[in-house]
Amino acid sequence: MKWVRSKICGITRIEDGLCAAHMGADAIGLVFYEKSPRYVGLDQARSIVQAMPAFVSIVGLFVNAQAAQIKQTFDYVGLDLIQYHGDETASFCEALALPYIRALRMQPDVDIAQVAKTYVNARGILLDSYVPGLPGGTGEVFNWSLIPSLDKPLILAGGLSSTNIAQAVAQVQPWAVDVSGGVEQAKGIKSAEKITDFMQALRANR
């Protein structure tokens, strides 16, 4: 079975980022969307990044932010990758010319495969659950059987936890998985025990 990579998203504390890294996460996610309970300010984000060991990618999540804000945050914090999680158009993402992944919600009656193709230089497509009014972090699982064939690496998100990650990997066979609420003790506060359980369950299927 192929190696499935992992991102622990919504990190707000240094200790949570270090726990994710020590348990083998390939990336951590920092949320720069002020309406999110997992929002992190620039200085705190920078301190988290500076504490991370080598070979852990830092992903910055944005929802309909201005291009100048994204660029400033990318440089100041020291991000490796942008995650566009709002209504950003392909032309917007491409024009900014920063390495990125595009999150798409599994909205009914939307041709996800066709939309994904428009993000020409995306490093991957993240598929998340669709809940009206919420850009992400819903904690809800969507119907994995509806996932279309993509010409980009597939990153699976939406309600993942240690109890369903084995089934998710077996059924979807994604390039990577992205978890946030499934490893929390409270919104924005990770649980070392849940991170450990999640990563061990993921590794068991690698």
Rank of each mutant, 00 (worst) to 15 (best):
R5L: 05
R5T: 00
K7M: 04
I8R: 08
G10Q: 05
E15T: 12
A25T: 07
K35W: 05
S36H: 01
R38G: 09
V40A: 04
A45E: 06
R46F: 04
Q50M: 13
A51W: 07
M52C: 05
P53T: 02
F55D: 02
S57L: 11
I58D: 01
G60D: 10
V63K: 06
Q69H: 14
I70D: 03
I70Y: 06
Q72P: 00
T73P: 00
G78Q: 12
D80Y: 12
L81Y: 06
T89K: 07
C93Q: 03
E94I: 08
A95S: 15
L96R: 11
A97M: 13
A97T: 11
L98D: 08
L98T: 11
L104Q: 06
I112G: 05
I112L: 14
A113R: 09
Q114W: 11
Y119A: 12
Y119K: 02
V120N: 13
A122N: 10
R123Y: 05
D128H: 06
S129W: 01
V131L: 12
G133V: 10
G137S: 02
T138I: 03
P148L: 11
S149M: 15
L150M: 10
L150Y: 09
D151F: 14
K152F: 11
L160W: 02
S161D: 13
N164K: 07
A168S: 08
V169A: 04
V169D: 01
V172W: 04
P174W: 04
Q185P: 03
K187S: 12
I189W: 13
K190P: 11
E193A: 15
A201R: 13
L202H: 06
L202V: 09
R203D: 13
R206S: 14
R206Q: 10
